[in-house]
């Protein structure tokens, strides 16, 4: 465990909490992609299946439970809460799950470190996390005017990924024999998806303007 990894995990948690608090406080989920949230829930469940038999540390176990719990709450709010579900922008959140899930499933069967069910599900979760933000980015693009909290949510998520890259660089430099190609390449692709958004986010922040994405 190093400071970069810790910062990454905290930023990840913070991003989820920002979203959850926004939904809870405003009783609105306008601008939030349910597809992305459900994909993240699938990512967490397939990756953290080992929660019950692979104990690594209390830190990891607590984070796993909290990530699954908080993301479930977001999905519950968007699908079931009587007021919140009415604000869901389903007409614009039209990204097809299959376009992301199917290639990730095939890829995880073809490229994995070990051919067994849990390793393949773990690999699937790594691939799926890399692209799970896409429905959210498409929704932001479509609705143009991005409210502050949604913008902050995506920004914090991107920052979390950036810190994970620093964590890998640090581990590679300090831990003999450490390598994780599959995770590195997926992570680089994932972080790459945020670059465009980051550019506009920083521009808006510099000019202290409302974040607006170009068409």
């Amino acid at each position: 465990m190093n400071l970069f990894r810790f910062a990454g995990d905290i930023l990840h948690l913070l991003s989820i909490l920002v979203l959850l608090l926004k939904i809870h406080a405003t009783k609105s989920c306008a601008g939030i992609s349910l597809k992305t949230q459900e994909l993240y829930l699938a990512v967490f469940i397939t990756r953290y299946l080992d929660l019950f038999w692979n104990f690594h540390s209390l830190y990891n176990s607590v984070f796993k439970v909290v990530y699954i719990g908080t993301t479930s709450m977001i999905v519950w709010y968007m699908r079931r809460h009587r007021n919140v579900k009415l604000t869901y922008d389903r007409d614009h959140d039209t990204f097809r799950y299959l376009f992301l899930v199917a290639p990730c499933a095939v890829l995880s069967l073809l490229i994995n470190a070990r051919y067994n069910l849990f390793e393949i599900l773990w690999t699937f979760s790594i691939y799926l996390e890399a692209v799970a933000i896409l429905p959210q980015l498409v929704l932001l693009q479509r609705t143009k005017n991005v409210d502050n909290l949604t913008g902050n949510y995506v920004f914090l998520l991107g920052l979390y990924r950036a810190f994970y890259i620093l964590n890998w660089v640090y581990r590679f430099a300090t831990e003999p024999g450490y390598s994780a190609w599959l995770v590195w390449i997926s992570g680089l692709i994932q972080t790459g998806l945020y670059l465009d958004f980051f550019y506009y986010y920083v521009q808006a922040w510099k000019q202290s303007k409302k974040l607006q994405l170009p068409s």
Partner: peptide
């Protein structure tokens, strides 16, 4: 599953 590579990151 516990032998070999261990997934220690989240």
């Amino acid at each position: 599953l516990t032998e070999g590579k261990f997934h220690d990151e989240l």
